[in-house]
Design a protein around this nucleic acid. Structure first.
Lengths: 337, 337
DNA sequence: CCTCCTCGTGGAATCGATTACACGAGGGAT
DNA sequence: ATCCCTCGTGTAATCGATTCCACGAGGAGG
């Protein structure tokens, strides 16, 4: 692979001149420029990004450590992040933590070793020492979706509070009173917040959220299935289950199906996170939709602001309720017929 | 950030010795080793991967350029690739081509600039000059899922021929005779192969595949929707539609639903690629399942073989049919009752 | 006691870029 | 004609690692 020296030799100039042409530095004569350009063309030369990074101490690369790529919500987030980063001249290296702290640390470490310019993280848990170190050592960092309390890092996330209130209003309007939730891991902010928002919304209708109506999930389908089975074993099962993410909602579908029950007739279902497939399930699922692409874009902008010396700001965008049929028929055309 | 010099100073040895300890070279005295290790610990030193790569000319990084991340099939493939790569000591940088040639080239170029050790590609089209160059210049490369004819590059893919024969047998057994397919882009191998396999399987039953029963899709949901509408507008619409990937199957669902028709009563549906959600759609969808994780793993192994000087081999794994309800009830428990 | 080999170590070259500094040529002002 | 400034260019240092080579100490063998 041709190096800058080869180009310099071919063009009959020094490497300095070649470098200047490539970084379009003003003081290069027109003829030198054309000769260099011709040599570049002739040799098919492409600058070695590794060498460049070593010298300039910037890689023009962002790291994104995500909790679970197989979760469509995070997939979409990842895609939005890459798009915006590309628009701003950065590449993205993804790391999939699979909701595991060791994997998360593994990725953060390799990304740091590669001297990425900045790090985007949706932390799996309450924050490892490694992450602490990273921030202290000055690596630009932004949290997206989830965050870690007590760390001075900008956060880009959605606020589902109002949407959850809307959901509870919707459920109440349909006559449901015994509502249950399948929570995410308590170590994650989203795991806790969604339960809090739900409880708070219930309180407005003087409804309780007893402990046996809170399932402990881990944002994976299997945990949704297990929690649902426990709900169904209750002497008085809930009328509606609210899954705190889309994968656990999938688990609810599994469990209900396995018992030969039907949604929404036997039990209702709603989910946090809206994904394209929810339109095509049996029945279509009512969900709280996050502005996923906007979140990804905003997160990148905040991180790049930080990298390029501007002061980044935290961003919170509202989520919204999308009503479908999984909690019961919302508006029968005519009640008498 | 501490460099190897700082460590050397702290330990009172030369940088050469530090490097030797870090790469556990045999000839280092025990005391020197412990002093260096202590210094590394004290300073929180981590080797700079950029500098190391420049010197050794290897990045221990694989590039993966994928046609469309939002397609669950590719998401799973990407995940499998990353897992296997990690197990073998490599990182992976992903590029999402979004079925666009310019984006594909963009990613290939940046990956090459970063001097990745090898490239895994599921090509979007018939092969750009850039890809040709990459191979000629000696970059280790392996095609996964799709490939480009005439290029001397190992291919790791699934063979759906038998599974498609099984599908046609299944459909024929259910009494269906007018079968249609929504094809992928003719520029992709998978786009063509699946149609060929389908046509061949039909021939075994003396069935035709007329032109107006071949929809031109592009592996995206919207194209599935449009093709379905054309099918439904036919004087004699097909009895079953076979979508050549999972996203176009989603489009079929949309279109059918929009007309107020039902699956499988009014029209049947089958898809290439099986994904978790197909179990939960209304109705569950019959699909040809690829051994996605195995494909990802095999692809990485082939690439790493090539990188490390062994001769890689192409791999073809069989796909298999998963029958669900979207083409009609397969085995009524008892026909009389 | 001398020679030779092994072992541990350090100095310095190297990878491929960027960039500070020096230098010579040419032009404008005095 | 002299001085000075600007412009274009080249030389060389630098980034942080790896690794070849040289060297000195110490042990083994003659």
């Amino acid at each position: 692979m041709a190096s800058i020296k080869d180009v310099a030799a071919e063009a009959g100039v020094s490497v300095a001149t070649v470098s200047r042409v490539l970084n379009d530095h003003p003081s290069v004569s027109p003829e030198a420029r054309t000769r260099v350009l011709a040599a570049v063309e002739a040799l098919g030369y492409r600058p070695n990004a590794v060498a460049r990074s070593l010298r300039t101490d910037q890689t023009h690369t962002l790291g994104l450590v995500i909790s679970d790529v197989m979760n469509p919500y995070f997939t979409e987030l990842a895609r939005a992040v890459e798009e915006e980063a590309r628009a701003l001249g950065y590449s993205v290296i993804f790391g999939n933590a699979d909701e595991r702290r060791d994997l998360q640390d593994h990725h953060v470490r390799t990304l740091l070793d590669r001297r990425i310019d900045g790090l985007l993280v949706s932390p799996t848990d309450g924050g490892s020492p490694l992450m602490l170190d990273a921030v202290r050592s000055g690596t630009p960092m932004v949290f997206v979706d989830r965050w870690i309390a007590g760390m001075d890092v900008p956060v880009v996330r959605a606020d589902g509070r109002q949407a959850v209130r809307d959901l509870v209003a919707h459920l109440h309007g349909l006559g449901h009173r015994r509502l249950a939730i399948i929570a995410g891991p308590a170590a994650t902010t989203t795991g806790r917040e969604r339960v809090d928002a739900f409880r708070e919304a219930l309180r407005a209708y003087d409804l309780e959220l007893p402990d046996d109506h809170i399932g402990q999930g881990d944002f994976q389908a299997e945990s949704g299935r297990r929690a649902t089975e426990r709900f169904l074993d209750l002497p008085e099962p809930p009328e509606v289950v609210f899954a705190a993410d889309n994968l656990m909602a999938l688990g609810v579908l599994d469990a209900v199906r396995a018992r030969g029950l039907r949604i929404p007739e036997d039990i209702g279902l709603a989910a946090f996170d809206d994904i394209p497939w929810f339109v095509h399930t049996d029945p279509p699922i009512t969900a709280v939709a996050q502005p996923t692409r906007e979140l990804g874009r905003a997160a990148v902008r905040a991180l790049v602001d930080r990298i390029e010396g501007r002061t980044p700001k935290s961003v919170t965008l509202p989520a919204r309720l999308v009503v479908r049929r999984s909690c019961g028929e919302t508006a029968p055309e005519r009640s008498t017929s």
